[in-house]
Nucleic acid binder design. Structure first.
Lengths: 235, 235
DNA sequence: GGAAAAATAAAACGAACGTTTGAATGATAA
DNA sequence: TTATCATTCAAACGTTCGTTTTATTTTTCC
């Protein structure tokens, strides 16, 4: 029988076991580095199961990303909606927007426990993965959310040129992605005799927030050139 | 004959052709994604040449990184020395330090023309590569420089707790690495009807600088907890 | 010149990859 | 029960991987 399963039971269907394991393995080894034999082996399922349930390695990766990104981005939109309703037409504060975007990410990751943090590091990694289709997946997944938040920031910071805001959004994504993906280089910078990065998220969030907001609201670079370079003809 | 070759000639020894090509291919496909057959093929040399001249794929990657990283980090140390001599014992300004570290990176990359920018994106990529040895290489290569700059920042910002500076250094690395590695996500954020990212570096530097300094000097996060969590026992 | 060393070339190695196949097994419904 | 469907499984497919081997060519040095 295909019982819906009361909430906390865990026979863990083959499909779900693959997803969970794949998430971890992709995170640890990257897309290219993770082999289907390793994933299916760790998950305790047959090698062919991935192709049966998902259609292939790419599709599996796609599914892994989607499973959590959907929830995350829905939540991001929900929080933004809520803020805008409360504001009743007035522009939001930049700090609210930044928190709604990046704070939601970190808090959701923390909520799901180990799995959430694994995923957090995965998408940090994924941002710089070279594969063509990976970037496509991310682009599709993020397009709506980014647009909404971009617009919100435009309204929140009317004095900052839109182009500059876009750049700074990009920088914020980088700082966050990096802060999440690897404690690698940080471990190199500091002496680390304090805790493991596992529950560092609670420490990380306020620190990251201060940094991001400081950068976002920084004084503009001196406009060294009047014209925003010469506009190039569209190819 | 093994003539030293007047400066601008370019028979390009097998070794150098491999290095140049490998740099591009690694950048485009990542370490795992780049195959020796592709590299040697593009370089127009025999497949076995890499193993002959470098010893293997890992050693080749190592050599690619070292070739430019050595110069970069030497220059970074030189610039910092120069600043500190001029300051005559007084602490430097944070903006000077940030420019010496990140500005030097971007300027050097710009100097070497196409090759430099390729390399810039490569190290941006490399920061999140999963392979074990890759992180080792980067750690060795950067250790000295990071330590020097860290100390300089400590002196420049005596009011900011050292721990906080380390974190923010990490965030700055992330923002920069990301800004460099992929215009990928940015291309997704903006509408891009302006120029290609090729010569964007001149635009990028002042923008990035403002952002980094804004973040670095941002007001501290409220110390929500007095004790810096409880110190965990060292395992 | 010719011997020694360095460099290039072609071919093959074994291992690992993602995917496919076809039979065995389990559950579902008439 | 029997027919039907979905799932699991072991085995093999054909490629591609990094590396090694063997032979040939080129350079270096006496």
């Amino acid at each position: 029988m295909k019982m819906p399963l009361a909430k906390s039971e865990k026979p863990a269907s083959t499909r779900d076991r693959i997803l969970d394991t794949a998430e971890e393995v992709f995170m640890a080894l990257g897309y290219e580095g993770a082999s289907m034999r390793l994933i299916t082996g760790d998950a305790g399922v047959n090698l062919a199961a991935v192709n049966y349930h998902f259609g292939g390695k790419e599709a599996l990766f796609h599914a892994v990303l989607r499973r959590r990104l959907d929830g995350l981005n829905q939540e991001r939109l929900r929080v933004l909606d809520e803020l805008e309703i409360k504001a009743n037409g007035a522009p939001l504060k930049a700090s609210q927007i930044v928190d709604a975007f990046f704070g939601t990410l970190l808090r959701m990751a923390n909520k799901h426990g180990k799995g959430g943090q694994t995923f957090l590091r995965l998408i940090g990694r994924t941002q710089t993965e070279p594969g063509e289709f990976i970037r496509t997946v991310l682009a599709e997944e993020f397009a709506d959310v980014l647009e909404r938040y971009k617009q919100a920031l435009f309204r929140a910071l009317p004095d900052v040129p839109k182009e500059e805001i876009v750049w700074r959004f990009h920088f914020m994504l980088g700082a966050t992605s990096y802060a999440i993906a690897g404690t690698d280089t940080l471990r190199l910078v500091t002496d680390w005799e304090t805790g493991e990065p596992d529950n560092d998220i609670e420490q990380l969030l306020p620190r990251l927030m201060s940094f991001l907001l400081g950068g976002l609201r920084a004084p503009l670079p001196e406009p060294s050139r009047k014209t925003p370079p010469q506009r190039r003809k569209k190819s």
